[in-house]
C-alpha cells in the first residue's frame, strides 16, 4: 500500500472533504435530499470555500433538516416553515462577505412560503436558494404539496385535482437573476449548478427534483427517480469554472460551447446537448419552461442568468467592516448630535 494514498487529499484552502461534512443524515435511505447534501459538500470542497464563510438557512421539512448534514463548521439557522427567506435577508446584512445558502422544500417554498420566496427573489438578496422538490410534504407524511403533479394519487390523499406551481417559473416571474433546475439523480449536474450559484451575486434559485422514496416515488410520478431518469432533458451540460482556474484551450475545445461570465470573474461553460439555448434571454427561458410544462419534460440546466443585475446589498452603502463587528462608538451618535435635535423640537 502506498503511504501517500493514506494521506487525505486537501483542496487549496488546505481542507479535506471531511471538513465540509456534517452530522450523519437521519433522512430515509435513498431520499433525494441526501444526495443533494453530498453535492453541496463536493461543490464547496471543489470551490475551496472556507466553511466559516458560509451561513446556512432553512425552513421546516425533511429538506430543511438537511443543513445539519453538511458544513458542520458553518453557522446556520433552522427557522420557521416557509419563512426562511426573511430570516436570511436580515442575517446577511450583518457580514456581507458571507455566502448565504438556503435549503427549502416544495411545501416550504411553494405553499406556505410562496410570498417570502418571491420577495427574496425580487430583492435579489445574494444567496443560493435550493428547493429540494419532491411534490409532497415528506415530514408530515405524504400530503400533496403545491408542486404535486396534476392527477397524482397518493395513499390517504386521493387524487390531486389542482395544477402544480412551477418554482422556476415563479422565480422568473419575480425577476430572478439566476434560475436553474436539476435532478437529484444527476449529481454531477447538481454539483456544477451549485458551484455556479455560489458565485452568483444575487439570489440563485435552484429547483432540484428530489424524489421522496417513502411517499412519492411511483414510476409515473414526475418527482420520482424512474420518471426523472427517463424524462430528463438537459438544456446543456453545465461546467463551472472558478475565477482562479485557468481555462485551457484543450479542456474546452470539444463540442460547442457557450460561456457565461459571472460577476466574480468565474464562468459557466455550457456544452451544447442538442439545441442552441441562450440562458441570458428571459423570453427564451419563459418559453422553454412553458414548453416543458406542456410536454411533461424535465428541463434541467441553467435556465436563466443575469450576472450583472443590482442586488439588495447594492441598495445600501455599507461600510467595509461588517456591521456586526462595528465597535459601539460607531453606532451611537454624539451628545452634540442629540443636543442639536433637541433644539429642533423646541
Amino acid at each position: 500500500m502506498n503511504l501517500a494514498n493514506m494521506v487525505e487529499r486537501t483542496n487549496s484552502a488546505g481542507l479535506t472533504r471531511n471538513d465540509y461534512s456534517g452530522e450523519s443524515s437521519t433522512l430515509c435511505k435513498g431520499c433525494g435530499h441526501n444526495s443533494i447534501s453530498n453535492m453541496i459538500i463536493s461543490a464547496c470542497y471543489e470551490l475551496n470555500l472556507r466553511p466559516e464563510k458560509v451561513v446556512k438557512f432553512s425552513g421546516i421539512g425533511c429538506s430543511s433538516k438537511s443543513p445539519t448534514y453538511f458544513l458542520k463548521n458553518s453557522f446556520g439557522f433552522n427557522g420557521l416553515h416557509g419563512r426562511m427567506p426573511s430570516m436570511a435577508t436580515g442575517a446577511l446584512f450583518a457580514d456581507t462577505t458571507l455566502k448565504g445558502l438556503g435549503i427549502s422544500g416544495d411545501g416550504d417554498t411553494a405553499n406556505i412560503g410562496l410570498g417570502q420566496f418571491k420577495h427574496l427573489v425580487r430583492r435579489n438578496m445574494p444567496m443560493v436558494y435550493i428547493v429540494e422538490n419532491n411534490g409532497v410534504y415528506g415530514l408530515t407524511k405524504g400530503q400533496f404539496s403545491a408542486t404535486a403533479d396534476y392527477g397524482l394519487s397518493l395513499k390517504r390523499q386521493g387524487q390531486n385535482v389542482y395544477l402544480p406551481v412551477d418554482i422556476a417559473l415563479e422565480a422568473l416571474a419575480a425577476n430572478a437573476t439566476f434560475v436553474a433546475r436539476s435532478f437529484a439523480g444527476d449529481p454531477k449536474q447538481v454539483k456544477e449548478i451549485i458551484k455556479a450559484a455560489l458565485s452568483h451575486e444575487g439570489t440563485a434559485v435552484i429547483d432540484i427534483i428530489s424524489p421522496c422514496v417513502t411517499f412519492n416515488n411511483k414510476e409515473n410520478a414526475l418527482h420520482s427517480y424512474s420518471w426523472g431518469k427517463g424524462h430528463e432533458d438537459p438544456l446543456h451540460e453545465v461546467e463551472f469554472v472558478p475565477s482562479r482556474d485557468e481555462i485551457t484551450v484543450e479542456d474546452f475545445n470539444h463540442g460547442e460551447m457557450r460561456e457565461v461570465a459571472l460577476h466574480d470573474g468565474s464562468t459557466i461553460m455550457l456544452k451544447k446537448v442538442d439545441k442552441e439555448y441562450d440562458p441570458t434571454n428571459r423570453k427564451e427561458a419563459l418559453k422553454i419552461l412553458a414548453d416543458a410544462i406542456k410536454n411533461r419534460w424535465l428541463i434541467t440546466g441553467l435556465i436563466y442568468v443575469d450576472p450583472d443585475a443590482a442586488n439588495m446589498l447594492d441598495m445600501y452603502d455599507l461600510p467595509e467592516t461588517p456591521l456586526n463587528r462595528l465597535p459601539v462608538e460607531k453606532i451611537r451618535p454624539s451628545k452634540e448630535t442629540l443636543e442639536e435635535l433637541n433644539q429642533k423640537f423646541i
Binding site: 430570516m87 436580515g90 457580514d95
Partner: peptide, 9 residues
C-alpha cells in the same frame, strides 16, 4: 423574520 435574522447575526 428579517429582524430576528439580523438579531441572531
Amino acid at each position: 423574520g428579517m429582524t430576528i435574522g439580523a438579531g441572531w447575526a
